[in-house]
Nucleic acid binder design. Structure first.
Lengths: 330, 330
DNA sequence: TTGTAAGCGTTATCAC
DNA sequence: GTGATAACGCTTACAA
């Protein structure tokens, strides 16, 4: 394992100064074609490549973006991560993936990200408390962005799917299908308000409905807890008040609810009860579920964050219109 | 956005030299308790934290590990990523997630990782050609590890689930259940040999079976392609030769196959045909599938890679025993 | 225990 | 167009 060649090594070998070497590797630098070729050849021989670490120290730019994720149980995270990493890489940036949990909390993660001088931090669907972002120690850190959830925090833009619009589209579909006894199953309490889906759902039925919306919540956004929450819903609700439509805050919850309704209740979907989810995870298309759901415009959302990170657009919250995906469950 | 305080700023404020400041932040450095307190207080006031970038440049250690992933379609990736990031973070390391695809290949990724001086690179289930790693430009890069697939490359340890053992356990279970007409559905051709599941499966039935194993392969490891491949299998195979057991190379393929068998063929599982997968993805437990599968010991595998990265154990290939998960499909 | 000098490999800026 | 000087913020000697 020989030591890596530095610009100085190349300079010596090419018979120029190290600054000329740098110029050869700086697009648009003023350098004679002759010496450029000479340097490139010497660099090739020595297998030289610029040390990005040193460059970062000098330029104060790491080209790294931290992505904070706290919910690896949600399968929706994976396709978005794919898009995120890919779009970052297309712009010459790299994603540092940080796992947030009870032992490694947001503040710690942000501090760490700060020490590592990342160019930006993306909070991806994480259950952070707004107060946390006001932590004094965070002053002067990298610019923050919130992806796929709301943010009321000044100076922290939230890039979201337009939730009110999405829920309205969904509800209009449900209404036209004739459903009139709606129920809503939300995920973790702390997060659900941040997503705003439940309140938009209630708002619609307050206007269009006759009976109040049944409101239940699961312990988390997982299928397992969706299953449990559905069990709870149907156990505590008198049969004559059972809903004819169960809107779940995300697909994972919907999968669990469907499993319970089919296997334990032996009800048919959608004739006995309709189900809808949110996110259009890959599995929702499978015949085993064939779930009516809503697709967030992940592509545009990620692209928007990138434009802000790269300074091509002003840093401000934005909501994008998604797409209703009608399948057989509702 | 005021500039971050440096060790020198703190030194000035505390009335000591910057080296004393460094010492206050270096565990086990020899420093007088009095000045340590003084420095820490000044640091607190100035909201100082060491610049890890500068440290990395000086120590040649970034505490960053690159993780190369090329298949974000496989839901199994998410729980393993969670484990990876978490275990890395527990040891003070951070994961740089790199998306490999036709536009951003392994060589490019490794070069990039090399320029960024990551401490190690993990090829996580990616399909690469071994020759690729012999690219001259890769000389002197970070140590490589291969996770969850085989590697015959010198100096590149592969950390895997013990496949022959796993398949044997599964087959013995199938055999004891009375299945005698096995079929195997593999994923992408290039990868399947690397996983070695198909060959282990064939080997078992060569000894214990009477009819040859039906062998089919899907275009990728996704449910969609599993669905297509199942369709193909049952269309080209004469009905009297249909298998009574279909072992799929991973869960995603199995989900697709189950969907096809149930929805198009209207066959019952497992009475008409038994199905098994591999990976024990979260969804395989759902009542909609309730898939018999095999769980890789991800925890131990990740821990093993970490031990090697941290130099606590020699760098060498290792295979760990997983766990058969019997459910209702086989 | 503390301060000093040199070095990590770049970039920014100025003189020639 | 090229070379030199200083700087980025830290670590690792070594000397006081």
């Amino acid at each position: 394992m020989t030591k890596r060649a530095t610009a100085e090594d190349v300079a010596r070998s090419a018979g120029v100064s190290k600054w000329t070497v740098i110029r050869a590797f700086t697009p648009g630098a003023s350098i004679a074609e002759k010496s450029r070729v000479k340097v490139l050849k010497a660099a090739e021989n020595l297998n030289y490549r610029p040390n990005l670490l040193a460059r970062s120290l000098a330029t104060n730019l790491t080209h790294q973006v931290a992505i904070l994720v706290d919910d690896f149980k949600n399968p929706h995270k994976l396709p978005v991560l794919e898009m995120l990493t890919w779009q970052l890489q297309s712009e010459g940036l790299l994603a540092v993936l940080i796992n947030i949990n009870e032992h490694f909390d947001h503040v710690q993660a942000l501090l760490d990200a700060g020490q590592r001088q990342v160019d930006a931090v993306i909070l991806f669907g994480t259950a952070f408390r707004p107060e946390m972002l006001e932590d004094d120690r965070l002053r002067g850190g990298a610019p923050l962005y919130v992806l796929a959830r709301e943010s009321q925090i000044v100076d922290v833009p939230a890039i979201t799917c337009d939730t009110p619009l999405a829920i309205q589209e969904m509800c209009e579909h449900f209404y036209s299908k004739g459903y009139r006894r709606p129920a809503f199953l939300s995920g973790a309490k702390t997060l659900s308000t941040a997503l705003g889906r439940q309140s938009a759902f209630s708002a619609f039925w307050k206007v269009h409905g006759s009976v109040p919306v049944l409101d239940f919540s699961a312990a988390s956004y997982s299928s397992e807890h969706g299953f449990e929450a559905a069990r709870h819903l149907f156990q505590v609700t008198p049969r004559e008040q059972w809903p004819d439509l169960l809107m779940c805050e995300n697909d994972a919850l919907a999968f669990g609810a469907i499993d319970y309704i089919r296997s334990a209740l032996k009800l048919r979907i959608p004739s006995d009860i309709a189900i809808a989810g949110f996110d259009n995870t890959p599995l929702s298309a499978s015949p085993a579920y064939d779930l009516t759901t809503y697709e967030q415009p992940a592509n545009e959302m990620v692209a928007a964050i990138l434009s802000m990170i790269l300074g091509r657009e002003p840093r401000e919250s934005k909501a994008f219109r998604g797409k209703l995906v009608v399948r057989s469950t509702a």
